[in-house]
């Protein structure tokens, strides 16, 4: 076991002669907010699936929360949280039922479920909505709830796949307040986004192009390195060179 949240060396996923992920190497520190950027089709989702223990790499090495992605997939799943824009909560369960369900899946006791549930509902200011179906909540609330549920078991790492897509600009910023909170509690945050301003909120970011990681540094260093005034320009400079068609 090591102290890095994620280590990754020459991680590769091949489908036939197509390298979806092509020898990527990086490390993520515990408690870091790590932005995982790339154009559609660059290989982000494939890489994330391997790191979440959902798909075996073709070659290379990687550990997540200290567990090996080849041999300890089940351990990985227990020690991470995951949320995406597409899959988050059960719409026809109430707020509290969703909390109980996910907390239960993550192995929390009844007592912990009650305490954590109360704490979470209070923190989100959702006392009024606790008995409402999640499907009837505005998207921004759903996303905030989904994130809180994804870390209810205090995982070492939480993976967020485009968590703020389509969310209004005020709620989007409130969501990032939650991310900072989680990072302060020591939870590592691994996040993908298409909003370039959000790339700036990460401690470090990597940018994938055609299956490789073409840039990895703090946002400030990347801006300097590319002589750019914003992350948008950095992203353009890198993604324009992509050969693969989108997605």
């Amino acid at each position: 076991m090591n102290n890095k949240a994620i280590t990754c060396k020459d991680l590769t996923k091949r489908f036939g002669d197509f390298f979806a992920v092509n020898h990527i190497s990086f490390e993520v520190e515990q408690g870091e907010i790590f932005g995982f950027l790339g154009a559609n089709g660059a290989g982000k989702t494939t890489a994330m699936r391997m790191l979440c223990g959902l798909s075996y790499p073709s070659s290379g090495e990687a550990t997540v929360a200290g567990f090996n992605v080849f041999k300890q997939q089940e351990e990985i799943k227990k020690n991470i949280g995951y949320m995406s824009q597409k899959f988050s909560l059960y719409e026809s369960l109430t707020v509290r039922e969703n909390i109980r369900f996910y907390g239960g899946v993550y192995g929390l006791s009844d007592k912990q479920l009650k305490e954590k549930g109360d704490e979470l509902i209070e923190k989100l200011g959702m006392q009024q909505e606790a008995k409402m179906m999640v499907g009837s909540l505005p998207l921004g609330w759903k996303q905030k709830l989904a994130f809180s549920v994804a870390i209810i078991h205090q995982p070492r790492i939480v993976f967020l796949d485009e968590p703020t897509g389509g969310v209004d600009p005020v709620t989007r910023r409130q969501f990032w307040d939650l991310i900072y909170d989680a990072a302060e509690q020591g939870i590592t945050v691994f996040v993908t986004t298409h909003y370039m301003d959000e790339a700036e909120y990460c401690n470090r970011i990597s940018i994938m192009v055609d299956g490789r990681i073409d840039a990895l540094d703090t946002p400030a260093n990347l801006r300097q390195q590319f002589g750019a005034t914003s992350m948008n320009e950095v992203f353009y400079a890198l993604a324009r060179s992509a050969k693969r068609s989108a997605d």
Binding site: H194, A239, R240
Partner: peptide, 13 residues
């Protein structure tokens, strides 16, 4: 209706 949602910055342009 939202033709560019979920599309990366370069493809959106």
């Amino acid at each position: 209706d939202e033709p560019t949602t979920g599309v990366d910055a370069v493809s959106r342009q």
